[in-house]
Computed example of a mutant assay.
Amino acid sequence: MKKVVFIFLMLIATVVQAQFTESLSSDRPGQALSVNMVGKNVFQTQAGIDFFDSTSYFYPNSFFRYGFSEKFEINSGFILSGVRFENDLESFTIGARYLLSNLDRKSKSSVQLSYDFGAVNKNTQLTYIYGNSFSEKLWYTVNLGINIGDTFEVNNAMYVLNLTYALNHKMGLFIESFGTFLNSTSPLNFDAGYYYLLNNNVQLDVLIGENNGLFFGAGVTWRIPPKSKKLK
């Protein structure tokens, strides 16, 4: 399975043309992956911490993204766990995201492939991402993923349904449902939250949700644009 991931990354790394987007595109807050790429020569960090009331565990997490083009990026992330912000490595992934198409002015689709070296059972996850807008202020994102073990068995599948509303050009609200199906089914999980753009390259966020008990989270997204682009 590791060879499959490596070949995939090498094939799509040949995509080289891109444009720079004025405002950052973050996977935070929430569970849904964004359908958008970060942009050519853009490095972006998405960091946060979640707290689960049922276990009193903290889950510090960071996700790093680098864009080779408007259509292709590589990414990597980790999740830690513990009662004192550290201890166990829950997940360590390396992957890539590719923009499949701009279906029309309102919708896009992309695909994310990643391999988790840190999970108890090493696995590959392939996720299809679809985004569409009802209006300039209201849009939704759908994630459908499949989790495959190193011996090519299907471990599970996941879904995320995210609805986001922009209050203005700096802040917005979201609500989403997420869970798993196929080999194991999770109860209906959900979360909701708020994001605020300090400027085009820095975003803050908070959320609250239900996943076998209440959980809370907060984080920041920080984008480093190409040198030719100035912070606004």
Rank of each mutant, 00 (worst) to 15 (best):
L9P: 04
L11P: 03
T14K: 15
V15L: 12
A18L: 04
T21R: 14
S25A: 11
S26C: 06
S26N: 04
R28F: 01
A32K: 10
S34W: 03
V35Y: 10
N36Q: 13
K40Y: 02
N41H: 13
V42S: 05
Q44T: 12
Q44G: 13
A47M: 13
A47V: 10
I49K: 00
D50W: 01
D50H: 05
S54Q: 11
T55H: 02
Y59Q: 02
Y59T: 02
S62T: 05
F64R: 03
F64P: 01
R65L: 06
R65G: 03
S69V: 08
E70I: 04
F72L: 05
E73T: 05
S76G: 15
S76P: 08
G77H: 08
G77M: 06
G77Y: 05
F78R: 00
L80C: 02
L80N: 01
S81P: 01
V83K: 00
R84S: 00
R84G: 00
F85D: 00
N87E: 02
D88C: 07
L89G: 05
T93V: 06
T93C: 01
G95Q: 02
Y98A: 11
L99S: 03
L100K: 09
L100D: 01
S101R: 13
L103Q: 06
R105K: 15
R105T: 10
K106R: 15
K106Y: 12
K108F: 10
K108H: 11
S110Y: 09
Q112H: 12
S114I: 01
S114R: 08
Y115L: 07
A119N: 14
A119V: 03
N123I: 05
L126P: 01
T127C: 07
I129L: 15
Y130Q: 06
L138C: 02
W139A: 02
T141K: 14
T141M: 08
V142W: 06
V142N: 12
N147T: 11
T151P: 04
F152N: 15
F152K: 13
E153N: 14
V154P: 07
N155F: 04
